[in-house]
Computed example of a mutant assay.
Amino acid sequence: MDDIQLALRKMLVEDLFVEVPQAEIGADDRLRTEFGLDSLGFVELRVLCEQHFGIKISDEEFSPENFTSINSVAALIRDLQAAQRV
Rank of each mutant, 00 (worst) to 15 (best):
E34D: 09
D38S: 02
M1E: 03
V86G: 15
L45Q: 04
T33W: 08
R46C: 05
E65N: 08
A23D: 13
F42A: 08
Q84K: 03
D79I: 09
P64A: 08
A83V: 13
V86F: 08
E50P: 05
E65R: 07
E14S: 07
D15G: 13
D3Y: 12
V47E: 15
Q5D: 02
R78T: 04
F53T: 10
S63R: 14
E61K: 15
G41Q: 10
E14N: 14
L40I: 07
A82I: 03
K10L: 01
E60Q: 14
V73G: 00
E14Q: 14
Q51Y: 08
D2S: 06
V43I: 15
S72F: 13
S72R: 07
R32F: 02
A75C: 15
T68G: 06
I4A: 04
V13F: 01
S72L: 11
I57A: 03
A83Y: 05
K10Q: 06
L31C: 07
I25V: 04
I25H: 09
R78P: 05
A82L: 01
M11P: 03
A75P: 14
E50K: 09
F42M: 10
V86N: 15
P64G: 04
Q5Y: 10
R46F: 08
E60Y: 13
H52D: 07
D29L: 00
I57K: 03
Q51P: 06
R78Y: 03
S69M: 07
Q22S: 12
Q51L: 07
E44W: 05
Q5S: 12
F35W: 02
L6I: 15
F17C: 01
V18G: 02
D59W: 05
V18E: 14
V43N: 06
I57L: 10
I25E: 03
M1G: 15
